[in-house]
């Protein structure tokens, strides 16, 4: 398996929230619900304002998958994308409780769990996720994890460790200066 990933560059992100809108338009997500969200983190102790774009982490060991009592959540073997089989979802929200990244949403109309799919329907057409192609900041890149990591290294960038044991695939590049 070659894991797909979104690489979020915390230096390039300009906080515009285009990714939120792109996702909502492409995936039909309603007001107050999110599959990806930009969190503005206030500056502290002389630091800088930080923007964190937060899609699903598509973990290597997804906590949501382990928590799901019906086996509705699965990790696609060919590219590591974590998906929900909505027909099997019973709306218990155990997955949302389990996810350490707060990435699991809920569709209150259909009473099922709902989350970022890396725009799996676009991947199937050979296109990249909507948030990535629209990103004004060039802060989001999509591809194979190993290639993106090599690009980041060539720019002299550091990857922020956000792993709490679930082996997240989405990666964050540290700011140049905090």
């Amino acid at each position: 398996m070659s894991q797909y990933t979104i690489m979020v560059d915390l230096e390039r992100c300009i906080g515009c929230k285009s990714c939120e809108s792109a996702c909502k338009l492409e995936n039909g997500v309603s007001e107050g619900r999110y599959r990806t969200k930009v969190i503005w983190v206030n500056p502290q102790k002389g630091g800088k304002l930080l923007f964190v774009s937060s899609p699903c982490m598509h973990c290597g060991k997804p906590a949501c998958k382990q928590a799901c009592p019906t086996g509705a959540i699965y990790k696609r073997p060919e590219d590591g994308v974590v998906l929900i089989d909505k027909a099997r979802c019973i709306g218990c929200r155990y997955c949302a409780w389990a996810c350490p990244y707060g990435a699991m949403g809920f569709d209150e109309d259909k009473m099922v769990a709902d989350k970022c799919t890396y725009c799996a329907h676009r991947l199937a057409k050979g296109e990249q996720p909507a948030c990535v192609v629209k990103c004004p900041g060039h802060a989001l890149s999509f591809g194979k994890a190993s290639e993106l990591a090599a690009n980041a290294r060539s720019e002299g960038r550091w990857i922020r460790n956000i792993d709490v044991g679930t082996k997240p695939s989405t990666v964050y590049l540290e700011r140049l200066k905090p």
């Binding site: 338009l25 995936n27 039909g28 997500v29 309603s30 209150e108």
Partner: peptide, 12 residues
């Protein structure tokens, strides 16, 4: 209470 996206739920 909740505003539906034009595309309703589901992909565009």
């Amino acid at each position: 209470k909740t505003h539906k996206p034009y595309t309703e739920s589901g992909i565009a």
